[in-house]
């Protein structure tokens, strides 16, 4: 089975988020970048499927050269090779067009992504890629097993429950917890990752249908109002009469 896993390069959740003076762009200073956590679920599930059934796992990132540290990390976790589309990922449509172009060239059996990129929280790329390729998209999937060589069984979260689906390859699935247990690269993985192929290709198409004008931060809370544990019941009347949420 030929599997493509798309990974985005995002600030670690614990990072403080800052913007440059005029609020026009994200300030990368002092920010640690990681593989998008949801994409790690997709990556490890892809590696598990390969271990069980044979095949290859290719990781793909649309990004500038500084994302290569995390691409190497994905190789160290167990992907076989990698592709980087050498471009700033200016919006979801642009990213989706790059992924679709690579997928058309290489005809993968399965394209796995994360449910959402934790930086721009778009939840868009998977749907766009599926539509561009004319194949189904299962979003968000928390379980993925192969029934036989051509059909997968997936479980997807819906509001208030779950659905079980059987879908023929190829398709796009976007992963969420607990699809797999993300792995930490071991020493051997890190050593071999250095020599695994990482191909850099130039972007195609225009894509962008959105322009990010500026960023801002939410207003700070005015401070916490403490209530004495002895009079805990008072909280309920404050919530009703002061906060007006009951």
């Amino acid at each position: 089975m030929k599997i493509l896993v798309c990974i985005s390069n995002v600030p670690d959740t614990t990072s403080k988020i800052n913007f440059t003076g005029d609020g026009k762009s994200f300030d990368k200073n002092g920010v640690q970048f990681v593989i998008n956590p949801w994409d790690e679920y997709a990556l490890t599930r892809a590696i598990e499927l390969k271990e069980a059934k044979g095949g290859t796992v290719t990781v793909l990132n649309v990004g500038e050269a500084d994302t290569e540290a995390n691409i190497r990390k994905a190789l160290a976790i167990g992907a076989d090779d990698a592709i980087r589309v050498n471009a700033f990922p200016k919006d979801a449509m642009f990213v989706a067009q790059q992924i679709a172009a690579i997928a058309k060239e290489n005809s993968y059996d399965l394209i796995l992504m994360g449910k959402e990129s934790i930086d721009f929280n778009g939840s868009q790329v998977h749907g766009m890629v599926g539509e561009l390729l004319g194949i189904p998209v299962i979003f968000p999937a928390f379980k993925l097993d192969m029934i036989d060589d051509t059909t997968a069984r997936l479980e997807r979260e819906i509001e208030g429950g779950k659905e079980v689906l059987e879908v023929k390859l190829p398709f796009v699935a976007s992963a969420q917890q607990p699809m797999s247990e993300p792995r930490i690269p071991n020493m051997r993985g890190i050593m071999t990752a250095r020599t695994k192929p990482l191909k850099v290709v130039e972007p195609t198409g225009e894509g962008a249908q959105t322009e990010y004008a500026s960023f801002s931060k939410p207003e700070k809370k005015s401070g916490v109002r403490m209530i004495d544990a002895e009079n805990a019941g008072e909280l309920i009347s404050l919530l009703r009469n002061e906060a007006k949420v009951l």
Binding site: A92, M93, G122, S123, M128, E131, I158, Q209, T210
Partner: peptide, 23 residues
């Protein structure tokens, strides 16, 4: 912006050649 809305919005953006903002 439910799971349904997100799943549809992205596909529709491609189909109608439109701009999408979620969340």
């Amino acid at each position: 912006n439910t799971n349904i809305g997100a799943a549809l919005g992205s596909r529709l953006a491609v189909r109608l050649n439109g701009s999408l903002a979620t969340n």
